[in-house]
Computed example of a mutant assay.
Amino acid sequence: MSSSLKLTKSIEDYLEVMYNLQKNNGTIKVKDIALNLNVKPPSVVEAIKKLSESELVSYERYGDINLTKKGFEIAENVIHKHDIIKNFLNILGVDMDTADEEACAMEHILNSSTINKLKKFADFAKMYPEAPNFFESFHHYEKYGELPDND
């Protein structure tokens, strides 16, 4: 039976690190999570237990740790939000290291609709940097997916 777990910044960070470890290394190990998050292994074990109770990971004591489908989806969503924010900040001229660091903080607090608007704006700014009446054109693009007719 799954218990409900509030998706906090900490939980999302664990899932994001675990996703990257599973994707890049093929395995998830307590020591690697601890190293990536700069926490002690006993803290990782406690987090894994909570994530397991919420069916976000599966694990065997001293054995394999794997993200479940649900955990994988949440991690992908967090990473997607991170990438959108980082891209948006980079368009504003923020250097990549700073954009990456700040995206990590912002990904946990911004609403999905805000993230979607940032993505649309970033896409629009890349596609139509010289658009006439830039903001009016953007709002039209946001709504209809194309530039307004300027006949």
Score class of each variant (00 low, 15 high):
residue 9 K to A: 13
residue 151 D to T: 06
residue 119 K to G: 03
residue 11 I to V: 06
residue 139 H to C: 06
residue 34 A to C: 09
residue 96 M to G: 11
residue 27 T to M: 03
residue 56 L to Y: 04
residue 60 E to T: 10
residue 139 H to A: 07
residue 94 V to C: 06
residue 34 A to P: 08
residue 123 D to L: 09
residue 92 L to R: 15
residue 139 H to R: 11
residue 76 E to L: 11
residue 27 T to Q: 04
residue 50 K to D: 12
residue 137 S to I: 00
residue 141 Y to C: 03
residue 44 V to E: 05
residue 65 I to K: 03
residue 75 A to D: 12
residue 124 F to K: 00
residue 118 L to C: 07
residue 30 V to W: 04
residue 30 V to H: 03
residue 50 K to Y: 09
residue 34 A to H: 08
residue 55 E to W: 01
residue 62 Y to E: 13
residue 74 I to S: 08
residue 114 T to L: 12
residue 149 D to T: 10
residue 20 N to W: 03
residue 64 D to W: 12
residue 100 D to W: 05
residue 94 V to D: 03
residue 116 N to S: 13
residue 40 K to M: 13
residue 138 F to K: 00
residue 115 I to E: 03
residue 97 D to N: 12
residue 45 V to C: 08
residue 91 I to F: 03
residue 118 L to Y: 05
residue 21 L to I: 01
residue 86 K to F: 09
residue 106 M to I: 09
residue 10 S to N: 06
residue 112 S to P: 00
residue 13 D to V: 08
residue 149 D to N: 11
residue 93 G to A: 06
residue 48 I to M: 08
residue 115 I to L: 05
residue 96 M to W: 11
residue 96 M to A: 14
residue 73 E to I: 15
residue 101 E to M: 14
residue 7 L to E: 07
residue 47 A to V: 02
residue 93 G to L: 07
residue 77 N to L: 13
residue 56 L to F: 11
residue 123 D to V: 12
residue 113 S to M: 13
residue 130 E to K: 14
residue 12 E to W: 01
residue 140 H to W: 05
residue 88 F to R: 04
residue 108 H to Q: 09
residue 57 V to N: 02
residue 47 A to Q: 09
